[in-house]
Design a protein around this nucleic acid. Sequence first.
RNA 1: GCCGAAGUGGCGGAAUGGCAGACGCGACGGUCUCAAAAACCGUUGGCCGGCAACGGUCAUGUGGGUUCGACUCCCACCUUCGGCACCA
Length: 829
Amino acid sequence: MSEQQTQTKRRPPQAERYDPRAIEAKWQQRWEADRLYETSDDDPRPKWYALTMLPYTSGDLHIGHWYAMAPSDTAARYKRMTGYNVLFPMGFDAFGLPAENAAIKNQTHPAEWTFANVERMRGQLKMMGAMFDWRREVVTASPDYYKWTQWWFLKLLEHDLAYKKKASVWWCPNDQTVLANEQVVDGRCERCDTPVAKRDLEQWFFRITNYADELLDFSKMQWPEQIQAMQRNWIGRSEGAELRFGLDVPGVATSEVRVFTTRPDTVYGVTFFVLAPEHPLVEEITTPDRRDAVRAYVDAARRETEIERMSTEREKTGVFTGAYVTNPFNGKQVPVWTADYVLATYGTGAVMGVPAHDQRDFDFAKEYGLDIIPVFDHPDYGGGELTQAFGHGGSMINSGLFDGTPDAEAIPAVVKYAEQQGFGRGTVNYRLRDWGISRQRMWGAPIPIIYCETHGVVPVPERDLPVLLPEDAEFRPTGESPLTYHEGFLNTTCPIGGEPARRETDTLDTFVCSSWYQLRYIDPQNDERPFSRDLARKWLPVDQYSGGSEHAVMHLLYTRFFTKAARDMGMVEFDEPFTRLFNQGQILGPDGQRMSKSRGNVIAPDSQIDRWGADTFRAYLMFLGPWDEGGPYDPSGISGAYRWLNRVWNVVLGGIETTSAGGAQETRALRRWTHKTIKKVTEDISHFRFNTMIAALMEYTNYLTRLREAGAGADATAWSEALESLVLIIAPTVPHIAEELWQRMGKPYSVHTQRWPSFDASLAAADEVEVPVQVNGKVRDRLMLPLDAPEADARDQALASEHVRQYVEGKEIARVVYVPNRLINIVVR
RNA sequence: GCCGAAGUGGCGGAAUGGCAGACGCGACGGUCUCAAAAACCGUUGGCCGGCAACGGUCAUGUGGGUUCGACUCCCACCUUCGGCACCA
């Protein structure tokens, strides 16, 4: 940037040019020295807890982080200016797979990589000029944080919300290690290219399904409809019945198989039965002659992803096990198959095959020549061979004593009968599964459990927390967790009897860490408890949460679950963690996809910040488009935001010839612009419509610039009102330049502690409006009409117009539509 | 495949039942300059007519529908993005 001064004929010389680099660093230091953004717990103003999702410590702060945080900061600053005591904390989500990958690659401890990233990212975050209260920072991988994450695990275990069961994970047979979904590429290990398959391990789970029904209730929050819809569908509540089919296989102890169905009324149409390949009974009931085929099929299924298996497009496959089950309703024996379209994780892992009334079952029956028996005389069904499955409609047929029961009564009738006869019961099933939290990895909070030969599974006593990660972890290139071969970590003594014992080597899913961090920010130094109950009462729930839409389901459901569990354990007194939610869209990388380190498409903003300054970059990101929609990152437009700030700088500092009594007309116009803009900006900023807010600010700046350059003079009071308002309403968006201008205007420090300006709606309103006149929907003329002109006047003026007359002449006027201040439409025939 | 969203000038977008293209980028022309950059001013959806002011007409992913009027509401389809439970 040149320090050279511009001298033009038209414009007065500027004392100094806008130099963001000088003013941004200066004010950041001043704010920090003055503790301007430290939030007190004792402030008498009403509280406002604004929270933005904490970043993962992936390396450098990228555009995606700026896109998430700069607008949140603007919203928080606005809230502060409207009279709230605003808490806006920041921290780091610091456990996880990428740190381990870096550790293996660099032969270092993951802590080294992680904490170096924390340092760097904190510095980069500070350049944004956000109002984060850094005294409250939390880092989930630091022992004084994960101590409490472990404490939460113990509490959930104590209240029977944690348990152990077998569940499948990807397993690389060559590296002898568990793989994350991300590490499986086209069915192979990303490290060694060996084909991988699922394998069952004992793992810890949280009983989130206990709260399935309550999690469907959004009445206590203001969340976007689409997020509610996604969570509702994810939870997937289905009413139906669990029915018991008889099993009589020699040498098999079990005498029944339970199946969940949403259509118990079609039970007489069952012609086959399917178990998921992972179902424990498959191996047991398979007859010797079918064993090889079944095993081969099950092995193949273990190599497939759930997404592949859920596709309704692929050809149905399956194998017959050789066994039969008995339909309790009609005593009919039907063959038991295993097929990959049945998932072990949904319902009971079994499906009763009713090909006439379920399309997937229909496809399967067609593929393998199984019987198809319709049990409803659906109005679309003519009686011949079925070409597709039929849903609801008609009344029951081929169903014994139920024949003739109409569709609407069928389900309750069959369920009632099943309950009377002991064939099953009406029940509700959820797609939601319990939350698996065990990770066979080193860089996470160790699960605080000890295994003792004598006492079994023993929770680590609270006084022994945290269970620390070893500092001398040695990573083998296989990716196996070092905890499994670290003798110092592994060997311990039983807290009950003192016998030699071994520690759990699995660590907690990182989503556990981020399920309660909003509670730690309010009391981050507390070493007695995870948080103070009094402070929780004061600050929570979070008033406004924001973050990427990629977290619409998992993180946001997990943390809601934690809150409800905490309430039931008597730790907090509210039901939901986040009263209001805003999900910003994705800022897309050059490949058109979400920016993330693992995709390798991140762009660092540093060079742009260096060139244009943080204010310009913040304004540019907010101007790009609607925040909830995201969009492609293209730096070519940044100069527009920079030019705008230059115009703001010049118009505020440039001076104008003022008079104490400017023309009444001009003064009125100036005040109208000022109040109209305050109104628009207030409305937009409070609804996160930052792009149109900035457009309005640009228009206002352009207007003031024209006014100033016209040299016509302006009313002194109205002009100072205009400039003062401008600086105040840009302050949340571009905090540094606003502070600098505020000071140069001779106003008291700080602009950020000023009151947001109010607007006078009557001053903001125009007294005349241009109204288009349409004939049959096409604009033919425009009229200047007084505000809220009566219909008769508008109609007369419209019909008097020369342009309109051409199109109306000689035709019959069928109707005149008049929308005051919007339009007149003359409908002719 | 399933769930959620989005498709509008050369580009980002505005308008959510009432003037399509606000605001900005880019491009083009100009001022300043030896020159360039920066800055500033002006023009800028397509087509047709006109020297021109201007007028006409088409146009919001595709096809249909509702309405005096549809970017906006409804139905079907296409494409792209986010998520799909161990990336976070």
